[in-house]
Design a binder for these strands. Structure first.
Lengths: 194, 194
DNA sequence: GCCTTTATATGATGATGATCATATTAGACG
DNA sequence: CGTCTAATATGATCATCATCATATAAAGGC
């Protein structure tokens, strides 16, 4: 083995991470293979040594995007109570920071409308990620919550929807107000505030 | 004037309507000028006699998409009370029909994630449409509602978010259940049910 | 230090699509 | 009915981009 065992894998990871950011900020159709490779510090030539197609990269990028979000929230909510975890989630998700940084944000709030137009493999990756997100949120709901998956899906819908709408609003102060209202409303609804 | 006064205008309208559908089902980057012209029964050649650029068409298409949704709901809710109008809106918006037909649906649930990547003119058209939608919904809220625009924005966020998530769910029965839950939850929250 | 292999780079290729230049046609008006 | 022009069609052009073919370079073992 002429290169170290891990060399190619590390390169691949770099490419996937670059793709995960690019795909969220520019959409699956909006990024080019060459651009992603450049972002990873490479040229476009070696691409097909790592992935059979652009679509395969998009799939990996979506998995990575959901995965890194999941890891980040796991870190943030480590050791917290259900209620605290939920509050942290809302306070991190429904924010100007998230509005202004799609490249590192939740794929649900970034790729949702692109999805129906993608190939099966991409949609499956997205659905996988979405379901695991909903299940995670459901796990933070009070134990007595009836039908927690449904409540969680509804929460995710409102949070993602709020961020999407905030992204469409050009006035920062107005977007900020909208998000603050949404946070308050969502937490109230979850019984975190009363 | 060799053609009737209205001929060119009518053609333009046909093109815009075709674009309004195409843009919602395939996204602004996903449709081609030639494809839209063909859908309107023309070839791509005459396009630039009608629009200075593809972007100008997208702007017109977004205006048309928001406009036609608005007209449809105006018709549906004509003469209804506020409460009835709101219920009708929810019952029409948060449905499988809407999930399965983005081409005729609400642009918020179809173009949201494409938007940040579009040019200024497109984003302005979208913002215009979104705000008028929110204002319309706000007008249906009970008179006593404090901060109706904020409540309306939140409702739109949850409704659009629910449809987006339902679109990501491949299993029809599951999506249907999610939407039914969302409808119930939203109406409950609005005080329409109790 | 050299050789071999694996990883990456350089440089096609072919397709697609926005835009534009030129040709053709439709139809109002005389 | 023929003419003339607005409206549309046909057919470039140029750029972008996924994909692939071939060339170069890096580095572990000798």
């Amino acid at each position: 083995m002429r290169y170290s065992d891990t060399h190619k894998d590390e390169t691949r990871k770099k490419v996937v991470r670059a793709a995960a950011a690019a795909v969220r900020s520019k959409g699956p159709e909006g990024v080019g293979v060459a651009e992603i490779m450049a972002a990873a510090g490479l040229t476009h030539g070696g691409f097909y040594a790592h992935f059979p197609s652009k679509e395969a990269l998009i799939v990996a990028a979506i998995d990575e995007a959901f995965g890194s979000s999941a890891r980040r929230f796991a870190r943030l909510t480590d050791g917290a109570s259900r209620r605290e975890a939920l509050a942290t989630f809302v306070d991190t998700y429904v924010t100007m920071r998230h509005r202004d940084h799609p490249e590192g944000g939740c794929p649900v709030a970034t790729l949702s409308s692109d999805l129906p137009r993608q190939g099966l493999a991409v949609r499956e990756a997205y659905e996988r990620g979405l379901k695991s997100l909903v299940r995670r949120v459901a796990g933070w709901l009070p134990e007595a919550t009836p039908d927690p998956d449904s409540v969680a899906a509804s929460l995710v819908a409102e949070m993602a929807g709020s961020v999407l709408i905030a992204r469409a609003i050009s006035d920062d102060a107005e977007a900020d107000r909208l998000l603050a209202d949404a946070r308050h409303r969502i937490k109230h609804r979850m019984g975190i505030l009363t």
